[in-house]
Amino acid sequence: MLLDANAGHYQDDDELVPAAEPHAAHAPSDAAVETQADLSAEIEAIGEAYARALKDGAPPETQPRLDFAPYRSSILRHPTKSLHHADPETIELYSPAFGHQDVHALESDLTIQHNGEPQGERIIVQGKVLDGDGRPVAGQLVEIWQANAAGRYIHKRDQHPAPLDPNFTGVGRCITGPDGSYRFTTIKPGAYPWKNHLNAWRPAHIHFSMFGTDFTQRIVTQMYFPGDQLFPLDPIYQSIVDQDARDRLVAKYDHELTSPEWALGYNWDIVLSGSKRTWTENEAFGDAGDEE
């Protein structure tokens, strides 16, 4: 059986992924007749309209637009009616509980999941998960997945002609510490070509999935690396029209975190939306509260 989004439970057998089909996948498909220039013009027009709106006093946008046509797959997949306001109730004011029964400590190191060392630039990514009031989100689940150093995902739908790495799956998990901290050791992912338009490349990124203390804080996002030249060209990154908001997805290089002769360090904090729950003091400070 092949690895598959639909059948798919997490499997780490190296043999499950078919080899890339260099010639077939490398040829631009007929569908991808739109050029980067076409797409960039659309992205720029949206950006300029947003800049004008800001100037006219519109509030800054902090989240991606659900309706962002330059990402072609979004056209039929965004709600056309506005989101309906609801006050979160009972179940929505809590999150599922995860713990060390769920996640082994070694799952946070993506470089030790196979017999050998993965290819590429070893990195440490660490930061904190905070809620909108700055409270650490302690003891919660963080999941990540990513392409390998060559920009290839272990997924049968990814057929672009870059090598798989038998020593890298690209999936990690951890549980945040009492101070909301997480830390992964991994490999810097490569840029990744996709078929949104001709010559479309995603900036290098790591997918992140986080839970808060309320289910309403649930977030899946992508972390990027500083200085990527593909930022202005990428419809997914640009679906966040506000530059300050986009910057919140970019990790900072941290030389203090860099480990000598071992790994480069990147720091990235995640802020969830505010908790709507009325907090008791113990909840607010978690395990650390007992020591303060």
């Binding site: 798919g8 990402y71 999941e143 272990i154 690209g170 999936v171 997918h207 997805l249 802020v271």
Partner: peptide, 24 residues
């Protein structure tokens, strides 16, 4: 307490299938 601005979300993309699903 001062309010922090939330981190933006992004699409889950096409390749979550080897990462997010798990047994049962």
């Amino acid at each position: 307490m001062s309010k922090l601005i939330p981190t933006p979300g992004q699409t889950v993309g096409p390749f979550y299938g080897y990462a997010l699903p798990f047994n049962k």
